[in-house]
């Protein structure tokens, strides 16, 4: 048996790949559900019902998808240029922390809402950028591989958040719980649906996805970033400024992850704590791959993950299957997606 590269991977196959991958992952996770003594079809039915079957469930699903779209974009943008930003989790936390810190400045809190929101969003994005520019700087200056440094910085970032919310930014009214001072009312994102947690962050995330798609497919920078990823040597030979391109990619990528953290604080939580993210940063990597690094596909992949995560919570209560099954399914779909993409690019010959 050997593999032969297809000359032109068909468009249909490429679009089918994520569906096949998700199906395979559901099949694998189904075995695990069956081992736990439940009927997989019933479990998946309950997951769908939990996430889509009620107004509350649906709004929760969209609320969950919001940060996932942004962390998914963060990974997609970076991976396309072969910048291995695995630090989305840390950048998310830095974005969240920046918003809380900004909100503590009386002059910001006193601004009219649209302006305060805008400034806080920018602060969050910039904080995310900074945390990615550091490891990129190490790569460009010292040749340090950014995979490990971004991974390690995730732990540093969470410890830094912990340091701040137990120290200078601690909420004195939180009965001793380590959490930050709440963001001022002027920086709270408006709700999209009455009596739910769904907030305007979803609109921002979708707009960002479209913006990133446009930047990647319609601008010179987008083309350069892609060229830098496909073949750095050829790109630099063709006059693409590699370092500069990567810096802009890092700003975009870190900015998206920082924005995700900012929006989660401004729209859902209202304050920062060290359990703000159920690993949104790492899930972003899966979402980016499921979307085949396409910014618009990221929206669909984030919705799939959100359905799994939110639906699994209610399924878990009904059937007693640990809700970790959602994490297992989503992680497994990353592995099956890699194989699916391979099958779109190669033919198997006997």
């Amino acid at each position: 048996m050997r593999f032969e590269r297809r000359d032109h991977p068909s468009r249909g196959l490429t679009l089918l790949a994520p569906l096949g991958a998700i199906l395979a992952a559901l099949l694998g996770a189904g075995v695990l559900i069956a081992i736990a003594g439940a009927n997989p079809l019933e479990a998946y039915g309950l997951i769908l019902k939990g996430a889509l079957g009620s107004r509350l469930g649906f709004s929760e699903m969209l609320t969950r998808a919001t940060p996932l779209i942004l962390t998914g974009l963060a990974a997609a943008v970076a991976f396309r240029a072969r910048l291995w930003n695995i630090g989305g989790e840390g950048q998310f936390y830095m974005g969240a922390l920046a918003v809380a810190a900004f909100g503590m400045i009386p002059a910001i809190a006193g601004l009219p809402a649209p302006l305060a929101i805008l400034l806080c969003l920018i602060a969050g994005a910039v904080a995310g950028m900074v945390l990615l520019l550091l490891p990129l700087g190490l790569r460009l200056k010292f040749g340090v591989d950014e995979v490990v440094t971004t991974l390690l910085l995730n732990f540093v970032a969470v410890l830094f958040v912990s340091l701040m919310i137990e120290g200078a930014m601690k909420d004195p009214l939180a009965f001793g719980w380590p959490q930050s001072v709440p963001v001022p009312d002027s920086a709270v994102l408006p709700k999209l649906m009455e009596r739910t947690r769904l907030h305007a962050g979803l609109v921002i995330a979708v707009v960002m996805a479209v913006a990133v798609w446009w930047i990647q497919s319609r601008t010179v920078f987008g083309m350069r970033a892609r060229a830098a990823g496909l073949n750095p040597r050829a790109a630099s030979f063709a006059g693409v400024p590699l370092g500069r391109t990567l810096i802009v990619v890092a700003c975009l990528s870190g900015g998206m992850a920082g924005l995700a953290g900012a929006i989660e604080v401004m729209g859902v939580k209202g304050y920062v704590s060290t359990d703000l993210s159920p690993s949104y940063g790492y899930s972003g990597i899966i979402i980016a791959m499921l979307a085949n690094l396409n910014p618009l596909g990221v929206i669909a992949a984030a919705l799939f993950s959100a359905v799994m995560f939110v639906g699994a919570d209610s399924m878990s209560r009904a059937l007693g299957i640990p809700s970790y099954i959602a994490d297992v399914t989503v992680a497994l779909s990353l592995l099956t997606m890699l194989v699916a993409i391979f099958l779109t690019q190669y033919r198997i010959r006997k």
Binding site: I285, M289, A331, L334, L335, L338
Partner: peptide, 25 residues
Amino acid sequence: LGLSQHVTGLGITLFASSLSYYIFR
């Protein structure tokens, strides 16, 4: 298959750790 070593490795990490928590629970 020669798939991306970065992404495969991260996928294994995410899969293995969530599977650990699932089995533990």
